[in-house]
Nucleic acid binder design. Sequence first.
DNA 1: CTATTAACCAAGCAATCGTTTGCTTGGGGA
DNA 2: TCCCCAAGCAAACGATTGCTTGGTTAATAG
Lengths: 194, 194
Amino acid sequence: MSAPAQTLRSDNRRELILESAAELFVRHGYGGTSMRDIAKATGMLSGSLYYHFASKEALLLSVFEEGVRLLSDAVDHALATSPDDPWERLQAAAQAHLSVLLDGSHFAQVVVRVLPGDAPGAQAELIALRDQYEARFHTVVDALPLTPDTDRSVLRLMLLGAMNHTPVWFQPGRATPAQLARHFIRNLRGTAAP
Amino acid sequence: MSAPAQTLRSDNRRELILESAAELFVRHGYGGTSMRDIAKATGMLSGSLYYHFASKEALLLSVFEEGVRLLSDAVDHALATSPDDPWERLQAAAQAHLSVLLDGSHFAQVVVRVLPGDAPGAQAELIALRDQYEARFHTVVDALPLTPDTDRSVLRLMLLGAMNHTPVWFQPGRATPAQLARHFIRNLRGTAAP
DNA sequence: CTATTAACCAAGCAATCGTTTGCTTGGGGA
DNA sequence: TCCCCAAGCAAACGATTGCTTGGTTAATAG
């Protein structure tokens, strides 16, 4: 028989490190967070982290991968269960993105907050992960019925920029991520008074 | 008689430090840039920087202030020489913002790239500077003729987020900052095909 | 010519950084 | 019972960090 309990507890420990690191990376940035800070938040000594992760950059990469995974799964699921209307599909994707980004989990915020240039050794991997995720919005925006003079790349990057900026000003008490997604999409379809 | 030449040369030296620091802060982040990096880029030794700036955070604050000053002056001038149409005024402000942000000068990019949380000692001042600048967009967005169900705060934060994200993907060869500003505003007025 | 001062260098401070090492511990399999 | 191995502790490594200090240089003022 296998011993899943033991394996589970070890995974929990590893995940606790990831969560602590994600929260600190979001709050103080990558360069502003030390391995000792992460260790203290996890309740261990700094050297013990290296049993689970080979380096600080490897730890960042794991946090980043978890963030991208959360975002990708949410958007994929939203698109799979979404109707055919192109604008509704974009709104569903935006809502999934904003929900993951703003509802507690710090992993997704690391993807948005930490720029690849902060960790030169992992720069290429970070960029690849981000691009691989954002490709989903490329597809959805391409399906939009737009006036011919509308630049779809600009529209896509505009929406991504607006969404990725929300952690700076979002306050849990006010609008929900879903309401924000509706506002964002409606604003892109047209806000001028008749 | 005074000696303006001497004062000027010293100011040039101080400005050279500021420029080097701004470029490094943008490329590697605040925590990823050391005083020795800045000194080497300026052609001095690290200790010499402290003749001009009291601390690393004071240096960041000066860079930040210069960035806010450049952005504020550009937007103020654009609004002062802009017609009365509210949407055209917003586009003029956006164009000024994007031009300063994307045309070479690294000071403005520091304002967007370095988050207040990166420098805990200067956090309050950085937030105050950013808010003081962004108040201009509050005024211009308030003057917009919008459908009653449009949230003006969301619209403003959406535009700011989209603009502040441009340094991540902007490439000098393609669209100009002015063209981007036109696209952004047009997208906010309505992009759906009839 | 002397005195002053702005501007910088050379060297080093204590503290902290990411990382490595050798050792302990507790629980499961043979 | 013996052993093993995951998991982490305790301590330290050299390097780098932000910053300080005392002296040097070049130019200006009187």
